[in-house]
Amino acid sequence: MKIRLGTMFGDIIRSLFRRPATQLYPYERRPTPERLRGNLVWDPSKCTGCQLCIKDCPSDAIELIVLDKVAKKFVLRYHQDRCTYCAQCVVNCRFKCLNMDDQTWELASVNKEPFTVYYGKDEDVAFLLEKMARDNAGESGCPE
């Protein structure tokens, strides 16, 4: 094979007259692919509380808090910062109540709080948060 100098000459000249391949990310956004595995979303109406999703989660990112088993009152506590976005829970769910959103994927924050997300019917979540607040207050007041 012939040995030559500057085999990439054509490339570099062409690229002078071409748009750079770089994407200026925050200003320039490409549409996300359909199958993008972004944030987990949960539809409480279909859930039976079987906990199959939790069993196989590789990173303990989801917890199902049972408020009332008979009335199917559940709250899903989802830790975005632990989630590995593998979608195993979506596969495991037999009632199709879990899904991964393809739009919300920019997950940056300076502290950890926004990463704990509660899903559920509004009144259930409110009830749970209130209960937790009460418990916390009780705990801190109690021991000393």
């Binding site: 570099i12 690229s15 071409r18």
Partner: peptide, 9 residues
């Protein structure tokens, strides 16, 4: 150099 390498620079 960046433009030759198809970058923004």
């Amino acid at each position: 150099v960046a433009r030759f390498q198809n970058r923004v620079g």
